[in-house]
Design a protein around this nucleic acid. Structure first.
Lengths: 275, 275
DNA sequence: AGGTCTTTGTGTCTGTGGCACACAATACGC
DNA sequence: GCGTATTGTGTGCCACAGACACAAAGACCT
């Protein structure tokens, strides 16, 4: 894809194509159906044993949303990804000094007033992907890009720990009203798989029977005639998300994910049709 | 408060105390109990018949949250304001050329590469204030600062129309679970006043009896022995928000307003206590 | 003073949905 | 064939939202 970029470029003069002081950071979640674990995509910095979220600066010719899409395309190989902005992190010290450590470790020079070590406001994006389709790829500043089980996340650089915590909270609140599995599961899935996904996101155990009823009542999924054979015990039916659910795929959502669809609106109390 | 700042300063060299490319815009809502109208605070640009949201650049020595607080302190005279970040607007053209029109109209010079006309990513904040306590004050670039009935909002500069629309949507989703009136109403208020506030925010009419029941069930307000006399017809009781509700006042909230309190969490489906 | 009108305070009924829990059906291993 | 684990389906209870009835209170009229 991208041509290899010389490392020195990052510690040289400002790149005129990039907008300083603004970056995007993406908390990308995937779900491993076999293990039943929620995972997150992390990068390991070159020469440092430090992990962080995939992210990067915004190009002057792209919107912030597009920047997040580009970052994720480069890290995952996927072109269409569910992405949602969820919060912007703008503290005065978000750990920019990590970049100095990196430069030192790489034997590079970083001027005292270097633009990348300047204060950066970071816009957090929540990404949901089909685990099986992702091919993690490191970037110019990192050695490794791989999935981590969210429960066993390593310490993260900058304030990325806070960003992950906020992303997980966003995920939890949305789990009850959104077709969460739509972007995280393969096309066909079983009810137990969907349930384990919800349990991993919410961090609680759910009643099997009530869960199934609720999922079907939401009207997002439909049962197929086929069953999943091969496993022990009774063969579960396969399900898939229907057209109603699919209308949510790939859309970068407005504030709180509630602007553009009825499904996101929490019904008001005491509502009456009369004017 | 602030010393008067010479206009030319804004069109001179970059202010080293400010962080370029990043700004905050505040959608500040108030509720006029008498009129029963939801209002929003707007500024009119000097020499132009154009209105916009109060906002400004972020200082290098303050967090983004603090910047929003500072802007609102300057515009309203209030020190403690309910503020919540709700979305970041980062399109490639958010209407920065308005600033060029302004400079021209004021007979000022604005260099082609001027820092203020450069692309800006803006972080939107939702503010809720007690209407009666606000003393609107214009800033150095505006002639006038005043309340507008939200329904009759004039066209706004930049993409501020989108920002207001997003803020109103955020308000609507939160109206059902948050002590909305806590920050918008005076200390003591009647049930009809609270209801009119909710109706103004939601844009629907609500059943009086069910509304009262619901509000009391939420446990945020308590009835006082006093009644509001003077008006015609039966004198309504006065209510006030209790300690439980007050814990939400003045906190700049985390993503989607759901991170730091149970009250913001939407209960999961199929929840069970067992591990 | 009594009647009328409007607004507020309180209660009832019903439908829906969440949640706890029971039972039948299916697939595998012995 | 039988036991065990898992899945599919149903039932009852309770809380709550929503529709609606009726009583109480204050101001104004005659």
């Amino acid at each position: 894809m991208e041509p290899a970029i010389p490392i020195t470029r990052f510690f040289a003069q400002p790149d005129p194509a990039l907008l300083p002081h603004v970056s995007v950071d993406c908390a990308v979640f995937g779900f491993h159906t076999g293990e039943g674990e929620l995972k997150i995509l992390l990068l390991r910095w070159k020469h440092l044993d430090t992990w962080s979220l995939p992210g990067g600066h915004v190009r002057r010719d792209e919107s912030v949303d597009r920047a997040a899409e580009r970052v994720l395309r480069e890290r995952t190989g996927l072109d269409e990804i569910y992405l949602q902005q969820f919060h912007t992190f703008g503290g005065t010290d978000r750990g920019e000094s990590v970049l100095r450590s990196l430069a030192t470790a790489m034997g590079e020079e970083m001027p005292a007033d270097h633009w990348m070590a300047d204060r950066v406001v970071s816009i957090g994006y929540l990404g949901l992907v089909n685990f099986a389709l992702v091919t993690p790829a490191a970037d110019a500043l990192s050695d490794e890009c791989r999935w981590w089980v969210v429960r066993d996340c390593p310490p993260l650089a900058f304030d990325h720990g806070d960003i992950v915590a906020a992303a997980r909270q966003t995920l939890r609140t949305q789990a009850n009203y959104l077709p969460l599995g739509l972007n995280l599961l393969p096309e066909k899935f079983t009810m137990p798989e969907l349930q384990r996904l919800h349990e991993a996101v919410l961090g609680v155990s759910l009643d099997r029977r009530n869960f199934q009823k609720r999922m079907l009542d939401l009207g997002f999924i439909e049962r197929l005639p086929e069953r999943k054979t091969g496993g022990a015990h009774r063969a579960p039916y396969l399900y898939r998300f229907n057209a109603r659910a699919s209308s949510y795929r790939f859309s970068v959502r407005a504030p709180e994910g509630v602007t553009d669809s009825r499904a996101f609106e929490i019904p008001p109390a005491g509502f009456r049709d009369g004017a």
